[in-house]
Amino acid sequence: MSADRDEDTNAVRPAGEHKPAGEDTPAGEAAPAETESVRTGWSRLWRAARPRATKANALITVLALGLGVAMVAQVRETRSSGLENLRQDDLVALLDGVNQQSIKLGQEADRLTTTRDRLRSGGGDQAALQAATDRLQTLGILAGTLPATGPGIRMTIEDPGKAVKSSDILNAVEELRDAGAEAIQLNDVRIVADSWFGTGADGRMVADGKSLTPPYVLTAIGDSHTMATAMAIPGGVVDAMKQLGATPTVTSVQTASVTALRAESTPRYAQPSSP
């Protein structure tokens, strides 16, 4: 082995004679040195590339061969596999998610099957009527045409300095929606999907065309714990309003009632289409 090594180092060494010229010359140096080092770089590479039948060279070739195979194998592996490369933790999380979804879908399927069976068997009209009424009520609550009651939160925003802007109220409403609010009322305005907030000519806040006067009272029906937490996030709605000088207070209530209604409106452009 040592004999091989001596021979090989000898084979490389002649190039080393030029080393001082090529060694880390700063880029801005004189042109002759530059061309010189360019030549030595390539010639060194070329000289080292000469085929040599030595044991070490053969060993290196075997290693290179192995590297090539390994690279291709790995690239193939990465391309072909979807889940195999994931770690155990990721797989467990994935499995959990899929399981939960499957349970949810199973329940949904059961419910729909029951409805279908009810519709199909006998009392057809009655069941259909019941289903339609349920649907009407759900849609009515969503569209704000029906009053709603249920557990929720009430957020009272005292705003003596009139510092709270419509965008802050919009933030609060969005945050409530994110937290799962099903029906929202602001003072005596029902907040639905197409509600809007703005500022009137007299500087007062306007929601859906109605002027509002502080204190603003937001009533939301939904999971009160989730919504109260969402309001209290550090840097969130409550914090932001406090910084403006308003004093928001959030109270969870057993039965919040959203009584403000919204006139039914027919869409002008959107037409129902079959799915």
Binding site: L63, L65, V69, M71
Partner: peptide
């Protein structure tokens, strides 16, 4: 040179096999 050829051969072998 030979190791470089070895690398290429390895890639080809991987693709083929």
């Amino acid at each position: 040179m030979i190791p470089a050829i070895g690398l290429v051969v390895g890639l080809v072998v991987g693709i083929v096999l």
